[in-house]
Design a binder for these strands. Structure first.
Length: 259
DNA sequence: ATGACGGATGATATCCGA
């Protein structure tokens, strides 16, 4: 009995629906966390997702953001929506549920560009708020996966050219990385990194400037495992070929397999 | 240095993303 959990920033659930259903049918994840739905709850394609055999819990927002948790043959039971600590924050970026015997959070962490500036400040505040929630989950000892688009490039070997145009990007600033490593230091395991410690594995390729064709990518979609689940990690990878298809997202699905 | 591509929107130009 294994559990396969995946994260996929789909860049528009309505525009990506055929690709999304195709990916679910081909790879059959037990749990799939989605980000950047770019759809309000009212226009969410619930019938199509359920017809693919998945329970569908979502937190939509018109135009931007939006996160969801899909579970094969099961309905995720919501445990939290949004993060505490900033009452005026209306952005749909965090959704948490119990399903298939684990706690799972679908995360769409703010991009933070341009930096410095208010968007970067919001990113760093959001990371601090996420860490507070993550501490509560660790203390609970519930087997937990925090997964999604973190918009953080943790190491220089997680980006094709660390000294090029990305060097000043919010995704790899020291403040972003410090917040990432503070979170991991509390006891989380970066599933993909633990299986591919040398780096060089990308989850995102820009649509622009031939990013995919030149393999100019970086790693920003992550799965963080609580200690009990880290002990059960059997494999992790990226469904890279899905990035090369017609009308693909700019992210590729990223997954971990647990025993 | 800039823009490039793509999705979404009370759209036909502008925003946001990474």
């Amino acid at each position: 009995m294994t559990l396969k959990i995946a994260t996929f920033n789909i860049n528009g659930i309505k525009a990506r629906l055929p690709r999304l259903v195709e990916w679910l049918e081909e790879t059959q994840p037990d749990i799939a966390c989605l980000q950047e739905l770019k759809s309000s709850d009212e226009t969410m394609p619930t019938k199509e997702i359920e017809a693919a055999g998945y329970g569908f819990l979502y937190h939509g927002q018109k135009g931007f953001n939006g996160v969801a948790i899909l579970a094969r043959g099961a309905q995720p039971v919501e445990t939290q929506r949004g993060l505490a600590g900033e009452d005026e924050d209306e952005q749909s970026r965090y959704l948490e549920a119990d399903v298939h015997g684990v706690r799972v959070a679908s995360i769409y962490l703010p991009n933070g560009n341009p930096q410095p500036g208010p968007k970067f400040d919001y990113k760093l505040r959001w990371m601090a708020r996420l860490r507070e929630r993550a501490k509560v989950l660790l203390a609970s000892e519930i087997p937990t996966i925090l997964t999604g688009d973190y918009n953080v490039i943790p190491h220089d070997d997680d980006v094709w050219d660390p000294r090029g145009g990305m060097a000043n990007d919010a995704l790899m600033q020291p403040e972003s990385r410090d917040a990432w490593f503070r979170l991991l230091g509390d006891g989380w395991t970066d599933a993909l990194r633990s299986r591919h410690p040398a780096g060089g594995v990308w989850t995102f390729w820009d649509y622009q400037a031939g990013g995919w064709q030149r393999d100019h990518g970086f790693r920003i979609d992550h799965l963080l495992l609580s200690p009990a689940l880290a002990d059960r990690l059997e494999g992790a990878g990226v469904d890279k070929d899905h990035r090369g298809r017609e009308k693909a997202s700019d992210h590729a699905p990223t997954w971990a397999k647990l025993s």
